[in-house]
Design a protein around this nucleic acid. Structure first.
Length: 564
RNA sequence: UGGGGAGUCGUCCAACGGCAGGACGGCAGACUCUGGAUCUGCUUAUAGGGGUUCGAAUCCUCUCUCCCCAGCCA
């Protein structure tokens, strides 16, 4: 099922292997910073890195880029490990942390100082910014740039020992203050932070910057192809410079365009804001594009992996239609989800000619896509529920469900015909009276009879006395705007949050076997969509269902087209 | 306006000097005890101008448009 499309990175790697570069080996890494939960954009990177390694019989490491203790937490480390594993990849015993390399990184920094390629700078943040120049104006050299090696060595050692306050000094690479590439204007390698680190505890008070840590970490791990997103393209000259100065194993950095998905946001900063400001319930809210949210929503790893291979990899910025993700979810769930009947917005139906108190059990197919899933028995009785939307008193031409005088099939049960409608004092329909045709038992018109009548619709239903009541949560896109990042003047992405992104239905009626559904179980509610038992909430002992995605809905499309 | 990158159907991705192809979407039809699934058909694209070539999305050149970079974030 998982298709594989050629992409430029695979082409580069293939060429390198053919040329025998790096001994023909392919070693990649997935390097998240533990400062947030993983989202579908990370899944793209995970699939790329682990996929490449698998394809070329190499391996992919999981490495936490934990060089900034101010933002990073163990909770995020744990969630990331869980999510990468859930997506379906294995890093063996190669779980690494940039913080594991702090000692080596420090030694290399000392080496660069000795080579006259790095210096301790006393400029503060503001001064560094001023000396850096602008996009069009070259920078000026720091007055501390030409300190002696001895002085730099001594100062850097004292930085490490904690003799200076935060922000008072930095270690900088001595490159070129007039470079058109701002990253080369004597970038900071180390900053002072007297902070507790989730792994190294209080051992360090100086921490390496991303640019100084990343390439060397790749090098230590023997990474051959260091794949990252486009915004690091400007950093590649620095990545290369450091590795060249140090004369150590030099991986090839390759950049690709990060994923953008319509009707959602994929930046950790924005996701964090949604969480912190209560727009959603947490990182694992089923509306979130996080892997934790999608898992809770009922999306499968297979669907996500398949999505990642379908979107491809390129350098062009793009906005992928979220409909494609949903297609992938349906595609997989269609094959594996058990079908059941559930009525979300119940409308009572009385079968007037069905004997009082009688019940019978009818055969239903568990999954027409999978014969091995077998069949089950479902109860039928005089009082039923059908979906409110499946009845109209005065139906338009294209509506071919139940209406007064009209006959439809109840799935796996009988043909029923609507004889009358009962309304309350407000004119609201409270129940409908129907008759059934005993000769259509099982749902088929009697083939051997002269009567070969057909019905235009088949409805799902549940038997009222047998049904269980449960809460069902319907989710829609989190944002109403295609690209919430593209905010108008004076607005921000939160202004485009979909007010109907969550609808909670508390009195849904489900067929009885669903009372035993376990957290995480996924079903197709026939004619409605795919639903997953929530893993967190439980309402008085009965499961809560999250809608993963609707089924394709021709009738909804017709209605929508009419409105427009 | 310094540096870097990108422009191919509505969307995403292929094609790397030799008939522009796939997927999703859309439209139409077949089938159907899910208006589901499945099947069939159709639809639409190389940013623009010059050039090289028998032949250009692909090579050269000029132009236009979009994105990223001025954290002691990653």
């Amino acid at each position: 099922m998982e298709i594989s499309v050629s992409n430029f990175i695979r082409t580069i790697v293939k060429e390198d292997v053919a040329l025998g570069k790096y001994g023909g080996k392919v070693i990649t890494r997935f390097p998240p910073e533990p400062n947030g939960y993983l989202h579908i954009g990370h899944a793209k990177s995970i699939c790329l890195n682990f996929g490449l390694a698998a394809e070329f019989k190499g391996h992919c490491n999981l490495r936490f880029d934990d060089t900034n203790p101010s933002k990073e937490e163990q909770e995020y480390v744990d969630s990331i490990i869980e999510d990468v594993r859930w997506i379906g990849f294995d890093w063996g015993d190669r779980l690494y942390y940039a913080s594991d390399y702090f000692e080596q990184l420090h030694e290399w920094a000392v080496q660069l100082i000795k080579m006259g390629k790095a210096y301790v700078c006393d400029l503060n943040v503001e001064e560094i910014r001023q000396y850096r120049g602008t996009l069009t104006v070259p920078g000026k050299e720091s007055p501390y740039r030409n300190r002696s090696v001895e002085e730099n060595l001594e100062l850097f050692e004292r930085m490490r020992k904690g003799e200076f306050p935060d922000g008072s000094k930095t270690l900088r690479a001595k490159i070129d203050m007039s470079s058109g590439n701002i990253n080369m204007r004597d970038p900071v390698m180390y900053r002072i932070k007297h902070e507790w680190h989730h792994r190294t505890k209080n051992k360090w008070c100086i921490y390496p910057m991303y640019d100084y840590a990343h390439g060397q970490s790749d090098s230590i791990e023997g990474v051959t192809h260091s794949i990252c997103t486009m915004e690091y393209e400007d950093h590649r000259p620095l990545y290369d410079w450091l590795l060249d100065q140090l004369s150590i194993h030099h991986p090839k950095q390759i950049e690709f365009a990060r994923l953008n998905l319509s009707r959602t946001v994929l930046s950790k900063r924005k996701l964090l804001k949604l969480v912190n400001e209560g727009y959603v319930e947490g990182w694992n809210d089923p509306r979130m594009p996080t892997l934790a949210g999608m898992r809770r929503r009922g999306y499968t790893p297979e669907a996500i992996r398949n999505f990642c291979s379908r979107i491809g990899v390129a350098k062009k910025e793009s906005l992928v239609d979220i409909g494609l993700l949903e297609y992938c979810v349906r595609e997989h769930l269609n094959k594996v989800a058990l079908r059941v009947m559930a009525v979300l917005k119940p409308l009572k139906v009385i079968i007037t000619n069905y004997p009082d108190g009688q019940e019978e059990y009818l055969d239903a197919i568990n999954n027409p896509e999978d014969y091995n899933a077998g069949t089950r028995k479902i109860p039928f009785s005089k009082v039923l529920y059908i979906e409110k939307d499946d009845f109209m008193e005065t139906p338009p031409k294209q509506f071919f469900r139940l209406a007064p005088g009209r006959e439809v099939r109840l799935r796996y049960a009988y043909f029923i015909k609507c004889e009358s409608v009962v309304k309350d004092e407000n004119g609201e329909i409270i129940e409908i009276h129907c008759t059934y045709d005993p000769a259509t038992k099982g749902g088929d018109a009697p083939a051997n009879m002269p009567d070969k009548r057909k019905v235009k619709a088949t409805l799902h239903w549940v038997s009222a006395p047998h049904a269980i009541t449960a809460e069902v949560r319907l989710y829609e896109h989190l944002f109403i705007k295609e690209d919430p990042n593209d905010a108008e003047e004076g607005k921000d992405f939160t202004d485009y949050i979909n007010p109907k992104s969550l609808e909670v239905l508390k009195s849904c009626r489900l067929e009885p076997l669903l009372k035993d559904a376990k957290p995480g179980d996924r079903f197709q509610f026939e004619r409605l969509g795919y639903f997953c038992v929530d893993t967190i909430d439980l309402t008085s002992g009965s499961p809560v269902f999250n809608r993963a995605v609707t089924l394709k809905d021709e009738w909804a499309k017709i209605q929508k087209g009419k409105k427009a």
